[in-house]
Design a binder for these strands. Sequence first.
DNA 1: GCCCCTACCTACTTTAAAGTGAGTTACTCA
DNA 2: TGAGTAACTCACTTTAAAGTAGGTAGGGGC
Lengths: 111, 111
Amino acid sequence: MKKSNSSNAINKEFLHRSCSVNEAIDLISGRWKALIIIYIHEGQNRFSLLKNILSPISDQILGRQLKDLEQNGLISKTIVPEVPVRVDYELTAKGKSLLSIFDSLEEWIAS
Amino acid sequence: MKKSNSSNAINKEFLHRSCSVNEAIDLISGRWKALIIIYIHEGQNRFSLLKNILSPISDQILGRQLKDLEQNGLISKTIVPEVPVRVDYELTAKGKSLLSIFDSLEEWIAS
DNA sequence: GCCCCTACCTACTTTAAAGTGAGTTACTCA
DNA sequence: TGAGTAACTCACTTTAAAGTAGGTAGGGGC
């Protein structure tokens, strides 16, 4: 009953092969990702801090986006075994170098 | 039966209000948009040329992406009343200024 | 014992984007 | 008359991302 011949995935691969810009956009176009990166950079570097500041987000989504960002090497995660366990996130070099691109995008959209 | 209380749309608005980077990413994250912009810039400026070069794309999708790009002011459309009617696309100033951001993204992903 | 906290995770539903198939207009060429 | 081309458009299905509900672990405080 399934059609499993997914041209969706095939097309995605075609795009990645055609131009690496597409890969880059894929990494940052998840709904909450740009904001998460910006806020971590501003010091909102914990799950609960991010959850408060991104108030309409759910735990599930926040966790998923953080995991994605970590797997793609944009942020790193440190578990601090404290009173209640603490988890700190911070930007990797790759994550930090995105910030100037975000600045360009802000300028571009405003122009 | 519907739940029409769509927090999907509400969240999207929250993101746009929070940071204009999100608006910028929305405009360029449609699956084929980056490539369309790059190819138009390289002179593949007609529907059928784009269709050939983006071979797995369908007419429907190409038309939809072109319309989006036009409505967002990244490309412009000129109808040339020729033998078989011809439609030329070209980048607007806003579209052209994206190209350097694409270059940055390519560099970033390669790093 | 019982509820609270942080930082998650699993299983599910909903929505929007992507993709498919077929039709349309208007004009040309044989 | 019939086929072909350019540039679409409509109505539909499929897929993946986003969102919702509720659960977990390991401690702390009353």
